[in-house]
Nucleic acid binder design. Structure first.
Lengths: 339, 339
DNA sequence: TTGTACGCGTTATCAA
DNA sequence: TTGATAACGCGTACAA
């Protein structure tokens, strides 16, 4: 077992008080130079490591931030985490990383654990199935600083850092429209989630402004993963040929990948038979046989901004509940049929 | 600020002792049913959250594991982290994730912070420039459970969980040899790192066993990133044409990607002019214009195994220092000229 | 069944 | 400059 050296032990070994040792370790002024040296040497030789648990217990401050993500593997979240970590590192905070695995209950449990570990704040990107608003209202009343990122619960009363989902969705839909597509479908995400709702809104707004029909059967829920995209696309492909859309805007790239697989399986060609665009600019998007037109999300920036927002709340520099949008960029490739 | 409710506050509100409340919260037997109910209700209404800091201080156990990775973004580490997280989650441990950004000093600092936060164990994947063995010896003498994964310091006396680097390197080199290549170069990694050394060993062994020449100028240090791969490959391409290798085994896929870029820039064709193979099966490998032959590393498995190993040490079920190798799988694609 | 005393490692406060 | 004491929130050990 790892036996840890304490201030008291150093003090005893030196025949002085623990308080003096503490003062030395924390670089306080009022310590005799000789004593200081003696203590530092002893601390080193005994292999002293300060106990932040005890420190935190006293100061009610842990310099730890909790992060809750719904998935870890794909390209977006690791990049966000890197952004968070960078900011945290600069400010001497550490990250407790938890993973909800798209499970709302696991997400709740993770948040409770983080609270128990007395993190100074929490950053949450919701699972696809998160819907219990009352839980977040309770969390809010606890006073713990919380910031959502990417996948937010809008009504929860916490700040949200994401991208300009609605504007970008509208823009990429408009791009399809500008190039002659009229029959456009949307693979949508859960409507409890900010991104699901906002991207759908952007799609609808673009269609409406151009007086295009938004057929009910052309808005299909796919969720955010490949499998859902595949299944949703299959539904569209099962429509009678004259009712079939000529273009598809998928809620995100993984859903688009699934849809592409479905289209390929049916022997149809992208973009000739069906055009498709995604959202997120997954690392694989530009490497596909038919590179995917999509919206680039500056994930690292989202992470940084979210961490900065949380830290400003923790430091009491910021009271307001904000909706912060990092700007995206369209990536026109060939899957939309327009180079 | 978030004012946290304590056992004592609940006790006072109920006119009983904190100890009784503690017993209820921890589901101890000897509590009157009525008291239990009363306490649970009060705890809920007051929004009680147990303070694990205090608990850990007493029990000398934090149920927290420190993880140190050299990079976060690419496909390998997120997948490893997911594996670690999964095991940790099952056993009710949380992860403090730290990032050395390939900086040996930052790595040391991260480990020290983790010790201060009294993690129950640490999992480390070294930076490319880690070389201070004495630091790890000190760490070892502290008795804190430590496991290396993927990038290990062999002499440090800690267990190491990785893949069968040497065997796999030998096998993929042999694959090139079997298909007629004789002039084969290797883009190597830092020799302070297990993977750098082992993959080079595998390469050399395959070449030697086939009595093939290992020219000094054909073993070039590239490091583990794209940029280094590009530069190293450029050196090879600058050799007089008759001294130029016909095939290249890159230490990992990112280095291979850089090398491929260099080859392309010189107007040469893969695999016709130069064949290339990598290591790691990056998510992009199979999507390249000429899909990359490489070695698939089961990253998730490595993470799981490493976490299991660490937990077994923490639980005192395992004393021995082991070298655990998860088996890889060759992915033959077209960059090696053999389908 | 319930309560009291004490200690975990640290620091703020006040006294010497 | 240094030291004694109390407190942070909790649980163990013991007593009532």
């Amino acid at each position: 077992m790892s036996s840890n050296v304490t201030l008291k032990q150093i003090a005893e070994a030196l025949g002085i008080s623990a308080m003096t040792v503490s003062r030395v370790i924390n670089n306080k002024k009022n310590v005799d130079e000789k004593t200081r040296k003696k203590v530092l040497e002893k601390a080193k030789s005994m292999g002293y490591t300060p106990n932040y648990l005890a420190k935190s217990l006293v100061s009610n401050k842990s310099f730890t931030i909790g992060v809750v993500v719904p998935e870890i593997s794909h390209s977006f979240f690791p990049e966000v985490i890197r952004g968070i970590e960078e900011v945290a590192y600069q400010e001497n905070y550490q990250l407790i990383l938890t993973h909800s695995a798209e499970d709302a209950e696991r997400e709740k449990a993770a948040i409770e654990t983080l609270r128990s570990k007395r993190v100074d704040g929490i950053m949450i990107s919701c699972s696809q199935f998160t819907s219990d608003l009352s839980y977040f209202e309770e969390l809010r009343s606890s006073g713990l600083p919380v910031v959502f990122f990417d996948r937010c619960m809008d009504e929860a009363g916490f700040s949200c850092v994401g991208v300009d989902d609605k504007a970008a969705a509208k823009k990429i839909t408009q791009h399809l429209i500008d190039h002659g597509y009229k029959k456009i479908a949307h693979l949508k995400g859960a409507q409890g989630l900010s991104i699901g709702r906002r991207r759908l809104e952007g799609f609808i707004e673009a269609m409406s402004e151009n007086q295009l029909e938004i057929a009910d059967e052309w808005i299909v829920e796919s969720g955010l993963q490949e499998k859902g995209g595949f299944e949703a696309m299959m539904k569209l492909l099962d429509l009678p040929e004259d009712k079939r859309p000529r273009a598809v805007f998928a809620i995100n790239d993984p859903a688009a990948f699934g849809a592409i697989e479905a289209i390929r399986e049916r022997g149809l060609v992208i973009p000739d038979d069906i055009a498709i665009v995604g959202f997120s600019d997954d690392i694989r998007a530009e490497l596909l046989p038919v590179p995917l037109t999509t919206v680039h999300q500056p994930a690292y920036e989202v992470g940084k901004k979210a961490a900065e927002t949380l830290l400003s709340i923790i430091n009491g520099e910021n009271e307001s509940v904000e909706n912060i949008e990092v700007l995206t960029q369209m990536k026109i490739r060939s899957s939309c049929g327009v180079h």
